[in-house]
Amino acid sequence: MSIEKIRRSPLTALALATITLALSIVIVSRGLGILPPKDLRELGRTIAVNCFNPWNRTLTSFSLNAVSAIIWDYRGIDTVFETAVLFAGIAGLSTLFKNVKGLTLGIGGGSTLIVRKSVKLVVLLTTIASISIAIHGHLTPGGGFQGGSVLAVITSLIVVAYSIETIHRLGISTKDIMRIRYTALLTIIFIAVIPTLYGLTTGIHAYFLQNMPKDDSPISMPTNFFNTPLGGSIFFLNLAEYIAVAASLSLVVLLFSMRSKELGLED
């Protein structure tokens, strides 16, 4: 069946109307509660109570940011898989561009002096901001992914203001970035199994991705760094995720800013 037929067919209209109607009925009949709700859902409430709760040590994760606590502690395996999806996306992308010819190393003048000088300043500030966003992921809004995507902006800034050759001249190749990326992924998996490995060596029961002590397992990641809350493994996982995301996104930016001849798209 051709697209034109699908577009005009009454069946399409009927299907779309049914979806709209069904979802609207869900909302109007208060299927999701009264919008906007006045109360929290009980599960959200449990997490909001426990994300930083020194009085309930078996359920807390010592993270001021409840979202970070969910991402890396309560539902940590989701995020490990999410990183795996990101890894798969990048691996698939590198499969598509197997025969990248490499940069032809043209002159690559870049923008005017004013733009280049100011970009230098902005790059410095952005780096500091991104690190701060990542390592304070358990204290303030932010986290590994957010910090990493801010850091990847730098790559695109340099490509636009200077040229893609500048990145090459700085000694960064796509292969290096891939290597950093794999190391970060291995680090995340390693942090996830640290409690289990430690438990196996000492004979104590421990879970994958365990952060704070549980009823049947006393093993705990560090809670405080001097007097700043560390959130246990949340801090380290955020750091690894920061590197992983920054490397992946920089790779995407670098690949897509190559010339089509260099990407192997033209002969």
């Binding site: 069904a22 979802l23 009925i25 869900v26 009949s29 208060r30 299927g31 999701l32 509660g33 709700p37 859902r41 009980e42 599960l43 409430r45 449990t46």
Partner: peptide, 16 residues
Amino acid sequence: PFSGGVFGEIVSASIT
């Protein structure tokens, strides 16, 4: 425990 009771009217949401 932890999640309490249902929040909305579940029939229409379940069907969809």
